[in-house]
């Protein structure tokens, strides 16, 4: 780890002011940050610990929908009765993430901002545009079985790792951000950026911006939602492909749908294409297959990850079949 000083933030505004200074980063659950510090992928000179900031750990639900404090721990959110009953997709995505220990530590805000698992990104001995702009992407011609088939560019094809973000983006979640310039609300779908020509720029957040909460609007049919994750081993692994789905069903017809994909995109991948295909469609396998084809229509395979196109489609179909049953 690069040498840093450690400060405990007791006051939200003071923490934000500190973090706006160059070389300063927030530290919350630390489960991704500590790994990045150890690998010297991140090299802050100062860490501002924010876990003791007040008013940021609460989980509440009501007519306004669900509000998750950014410092709420993954395990607590997964187990919260309102989340389990009203947004099962969120609870399931959380329980399919990491390990029980990590879920006791990691926060909701930190989860959304976790960095890619791309091996080239996490190894400072290898070129990586995301870590070191202009150094080149090692994955495009390298080992890319685990890389993204959606949203990649000639500069970066790193997969976004979060399961939670996939579930939340399907639920139209909004992140509440406090920063040097005040408070703003950003649709989660707009928080992460495609790599394009500037993969080093991962989100729209500015220095000092702090996610304080995630709000999920009321979505009655989210009770009929599901997260399906496919991986090489049975647990404690990132996704090869995952699907977050919610269906609003009227008899044999789909009134509306929410679809997002994980493990295949350079950001949490909301698929409006799939949703459009499902809206008004009959509740039957053919509709799901059409939606899956639409979701992956823009997919670009590399030499090792082409299987993800089929796998993601099948995962999505399976999720829709399960939730539609």
């Amino acid at each position: 780890m690069y040498p840093f000083t450690y400060v405990r933030g007791d006051d939200r505004q003071a923490a934000v002011a500190l973090a706006a200074e160059p070389g300063t980063e927030f530290l919350a659950g630390g489960t991704d940050m500590l790994q990045l510090l150890k690998d010297e992928v991140r090299r802050p000179r100062r860490l501002v610990e924010i876990t003791s900031l007040s008013g940021m750990s609460e989980i509440s639900s009501g007519p306004q929908g669900l509000r998750l404090g950014a410092l709420a721990r993954m395990a607590d959110v997964a187990d919260h009765p309102a989340v389990r009953d009203e947004y099962p997709v969120i609870s399931q995505a959380l329980l399919a993430s990491a390990s029980p220990q990590v879920r006791n530590m990691a926060t909701i805000g930190g989860n959304l901002l976790q960095r890619t698992r791309c091996a080239y990104f996490r190894d400072t001995a290898m070129p990586c545009n995301r870590r070191e702009p202009g150094s080149g992407c090692s994955a495009i011609d390298g080992e890319n079985r685990l890389h993204a088939v959606l949203g990649g560019s000639d500069h970066c094809i790193a997969t976004h790792a979060s399961d939670l973000a996939v579930a939340l983006v399907a639920c139209d979640a909004v992140v509440v951000v406090t920063g040097p310039s005040g408070e703003q609300r950003i649709k989660l779908e707009d928080l992460h950026l495609l790599p394009g020509e500037t993969p080093e720029k991962e989100t729209v957040l500015q220095p000092g911006d702090l996610i304080t909460a995630v709000e999920v609007p009321p979505l009655a049919f989210a009770r009929r939602s599901l997260y399906r994750k496919v991986r090489d081993r049975a647990s404690f692994e990132f996704a090869l492909a995952a699907a977050a789905v919610a269906l609003d069903i009227d008899g044999g017809t789909i009134r509306q749908a929410r679809v997002a994909l994980g493990g295949v995109g350079t950001k949490p991948w909301r698929s409006h294409e799939a949703e459009k295909a499902l809206t008004g469609a009959k509740l039957e396998t053919a509709s799901f297959e059409k939606a899956a084809a639409a979701a992956l229509a823009a997919a670009r395979p590399l030499h090792q990850n082409g299987f993800k196109i089929i796998l993601a489609q099948r995962t999505l179909i399976r999720a829709l079949l399960t939730v539609g049953a």
Binding site: R117, A119, D232, R233, S235, F236, E237, F238
Partner: peptide
């Protein structure tokens, strides 16, 4: 994390 040895599950 990515060299996958079996876990309990």
């Amino acid at each position: 994390a990515e060299y996958l040895v079996p876990v309990h599950a």
